[in-house]
Simulated assay, not measured.
Amino acid sequence: MRILFFGDIVGKPGRLILRKRLASIKEEKKADLVIANGENASGGIGLSGDTMRELFNAGIDILTSGNHIWKHKEMYNLLNTEPRLIRPANYPHGAPGHGLVIHELDSGSKIAVMNLLGRTFMDDIDCPFKKVDELLASIPDDVRIRIIDFHAEATSEKKALSFYVDGKVSGVIGTHTHVQTADAMILEKGTGYLTDAGMCGVEESCLGMEPKVIIERFMTGLPQRFKVAKGTPHINGLYLDIDDESGLCTDIELIRE
């Protein structure tokens, strides 16, 4: 199975560049499935229902998210009713939505997509290592292709989780920092790994936001209203080729344009 994964979509510029380029990238890579992190797609922070539907209509099959998914209250119900949208699974019991989806392609092939949130320098929620054990135990044995979006700040935490599940999942892909890393690799037991997929948005910015506002925040320590940066948007993500029988990664390539 050939999979495209795109890093955090930041605001309108990120949505526009994906709408413009997704079809051609999908055709070029002969991709069977498209996954993207959409938690910052609406105004740079959060996801709205209209934006979610726009991204699905653009050709994205599954949307993962992170700590900003809770900004728009309408999403609470959509997290419960839209199976293609997932949130980090390790939020405490009772949170809206789910952190695992088993998606079936028209061909009949199935893929499990999981979403986890890191705890280092982030919210103090349930342990992602213990939660991934629960998720893996719940996936039927015949669903061999398994992808994790690990939305986390610390590189060490992302690396540690990837070694923890090496050979048990097809890929562990980091999101959240909005800066693509250069360490795409296949681990010893066959799991594809990337510390961070980067973002789809304006790169000449502070993580997709106007630099002036961010500078003001650093210099004064006062809250500021973030603004999505204007300029030329870029796409960051990766391509994975997964063996259908073993579920292990055979090829991983960065996408950056």
Rank of each mutant, 00 (worst) to 15 (best):
D196Y: 12
D61V: 04
H93A: 12
A137L: 13
G7C: 06
G44W: 02
F129K: 13
E27C: 02
S246I: 00
G167S: 04
A182R: 13
G66I: 00
E27S: 15
D32N: 14
Q224Y: 00
P223E: 01
S170V: 03
M75L: 15
E204C: 06
A184F: 14
K131E: 15
V143A: 02
G108N: 06
P13M: 09
G49A: 07
D166R: 11
I252M: 10
G11N: 04
E82I: 03
I235L: 15
G59T: 00
I69R: 02
N236S: 14
V101F: 01
V143D: 03
N90R: 08
T81W: 01
M1T: 14
E257D: 14
R53H: 09
K212R: 14
V202C: 10
I45C: 07
L55C: 10
G94R: 03
L254F: 11
L63N: 06
A89K: 09
F56D: 00
V213W: 00
I45Y: 12
A197Y: 03
L85P: 09
S246M: 06
G7A: 10
T120D: 05
S162T: 13
T155G: 07
D50G: 13
I139W: 08
H178V: 03
K12T: 10
R19D: 08
D126G: 06
S42D: 09
L22D: 13
G192S: 01
D196L: 11
G44L: 02
A154M: 10
L22A: 12
L18R: 08
I17L: 00
N40G: 10
D141I: 13
T232G: 01
A152K: 06
G44Y: 02
M122K: 02
A160T: 15
M185K: 15
N57A: 13
E216S: 15
L194E: 11
R19E: 14
I25N: 00
K26H: 09
T191Y: 13
I62A: 07
A137P: 05
R84Y: 05
L22I: 12
V169Q: 04
D8H: 05
F218H: 09
C200H: 05
